[in-house]
């Protein structure tokens, strides 16, 4: 039950009004294997080709070159969770949607009903099961997206930003259910997300996709990326600003009466080291906020 990708490349062509061709190279020479029990966390900037790669494995997009090897492909069920709520029929209820997709999966009606009951209890959506899909919130729709993927026991599972629109509590609950399900059944999985904490907590392997290239990361490399994506903002008293020296590059983001919000730039420092710095300088910390993002992150460094 493994997946083997060899030399996958993909380029898209577009033509303007005068039939001039533009080539967009999305993926180039991608090779990797996915074994049972592997949960591969795939990170990369927007537009790197993560979704394209997943769709190539799902056989929804044809690669320009290379091959995807899956044993007995036609009999395998690959579950796919993305953040597209439009893949449901909005005028039907959540239950009717699940019944329809269950029937397409060739499941008997009795089994579909049983599965819907179990999943709705597990994901706490019993009370909205018969509500028209269009009346659900984006987060509730996403729960149904995940439930649909689990209607039939998958041989493989691919998750593309599965926690989109979910609140923190629901996200933690559902993602931990998903993780234990994947590990228990030893289902090979690929998990794409911009939330590096999520990837760190749930995945057993890590990879980065950027500028057409793919690289498997070891845990240390991933942690480095994760730390670099931290974006701590500190609220301090304005009077303490002059105590800060040039050890860090400092940016004052905003001023809030007697306090101000600042950012310290030093890629290698952990939160503990930053806090120690404030303690050493005898600067009172009012609050700390981590606005994580991967903006400005130099993905190319990992391919050198």
């Amino acid at each position: 039950m493994s997946i083997k990708l060899s030399k996958i490349s993909k380029e898209f062509f577009s033509y303007n009004f005068f039939n001039q061709k533009t080539v967009n190279h999305v993926l180039s020479d991608i090779n990797f294997d996915l074994e049972p029990g592997d949960i591969l966390g795939l990170i990369g900037p927007n537009g790197a080709g993560k979704t394209t790669l997943l769709k190539i494995i799902l056989n929804l997009i044809e690669p320009s070159d290379g091959s995807v090897l899956i044993d007995n492909r036609s009999k395998k069920y690959i579950a796919y969770v993305d953040s597209n709520s439009r893949s449901f029929f909005w005028r039907l209820s959540g239950r009717d949607n699940l019944i329809f997709y269950g029937k397409l999966l060739n499941l008997p009606m009795k089994e579909i009903n049983k599965k819907i009951d179990n999943l709705s209890k597990e994901f706490h959506v019993n009370d909205i099961l018969d509500m028209s899909f269009m009346k659900l919130s984006a987060g509730q729709m996403q729960v149904f997206n995940i439930m649909r993927a689990l209607l039939k026991e998958p041989d493989y599972i691919f998750l593309d930003e599965p926690s989109t629109s979910l609140d923190l509590e629901k996200s933690n609950n559902i993602l931990s259910i998903l993780k234990s399900y994947i590990l228990e059944k030893e289902i090979p999985a690929i998990w794409c997300s911009h939330n590096l904490d999520e990837i760190d907590n749930l995945c057993t392997r890590f990879a980065i996709l950027s500028d057409k290239r793919f690289k498997v990361l070891d845990k240390d490399e991933f942690i480095r990326i994760k730390n670099q994506s931290n974006n701590y903002c500190f609220e301090i008293m304005k009077v303490d600003l002059n105590k800060l020296n040039s050890e860090y590059q400092i940016e004052v983001i905003s001023e809030l009466g007697r306090t101000c919000l600042i950012k310290l730039y030093n890629e290698k420092s952990t939160l503990n080291e930053l806090i120690s710095f404030f303690v050493e300088k005898d600067i009172q910390l009012i609050s700390i906020e981590n606005k994580k993002n991967m903006k400005g992150f130099k993905f190319d460094e990992f391919f050198k």
């Binding site: 769709k55 799902l58 929804l60 036609s74 069920y77 690959i78 579950a79 796919y80 597209n84 439009r86 893949s87 449901f88 029929f89 997709y101 397409l104 999966l105 060739n106 649909r148």
Partner: peptide, 13 residues
């Protein structure tokens, strides 16, 4: 347009 097409194909239909 709705996006249901890919979802249906993913059910091995």
């Amino acid at each position: 347009i709705a996006g249901t097409f890919e979802a249906m194909l993913l059910t091995n239909t």
